[in-house]
Amino acid sequence: MMDDSTQGDDAPTRMERLSAVRPRLLAFARLHLRDAALAEDAVQDALMAAIEKDASFAGRSGYETWVFGILKYKILDSLRAQKRQGKLMPLEDEGDDEAIDRQFQHNGRWQEEARPSSWGEPEAVFESERFWQVFDACLIALPDSAARVFSLRELMGLSTAEICQALEIRENNCWVILHRARLRLRACLEKGWLKEGTT
């Protein structure tokens, strides 16, 4: 195919673009699958599919985004396969209430030391490099199923209906897991970012 050479000398070929984006695909797959070998497989599958389906990519821009779109489905396929093989920990069985219990008193009010404080203006927060370091660290520190459901929801932007269909759990379970994940994340961020950040 003359496809690549007609774009001019400085236009990277599709293959070059794919190998350039590979590390980011891997980082993303690892975040969701939490297993280096499975992440490697999913990325491999996505790259193969991208090469095979190359003709169906219409636009000239957004190529990496298109490849990421393929990877999303490969990650879901991988989760489904693990689920079928009984390798995914049943999401319901994670007794991780303890970390949340510590944030509240018995009467349901915030514990004094866990009371949320202001993080300031969101735009300023997002500009802080330190915030993103702590965000990633806190995400990794989540229990497996909480991290998985949270990143499917908030990073992949799937609906809870789509997530529970893929993971074969009740939607209600998804909401419970997300509630816990968010409480854990907020506590982790507040501790790691606000407090340490000022010392």
């Binding site: 990277p12 673009r17 350039a20 984006v21 980011r24 980082a27 993303f28 821009s61 957004g62 190529y63 990496e64 985004t65 990421f68 915030w110 009371r115 949320p116 404080s117 202001s118 993080w119 969101p122 927060v125 997002f126 993103w132 965000f135 990633d136 949270f150 990143s151 929801r153 908030e154 990073l155 992949m156 932007g157 968010r182 994340l185 907020r186 961020l189 507040e190």
Partner: peptide
């Protein structure tokens, strides 16, 4: 305290989206 928590959850939601964007989109996009 809950008003702060509510803002934090909203910020987490936005942070997830931006984190994904920074992974997805690249200079060539």
């Amino acid at each position: 305290a809950c008003r702060q928590c509510d803002r934090q959850f909203t910020l987490l939601h936005e942070a997830g989206r931006r984190r994904a964007d920074s992974l997805f989109a690249s200079r060539s996009d």
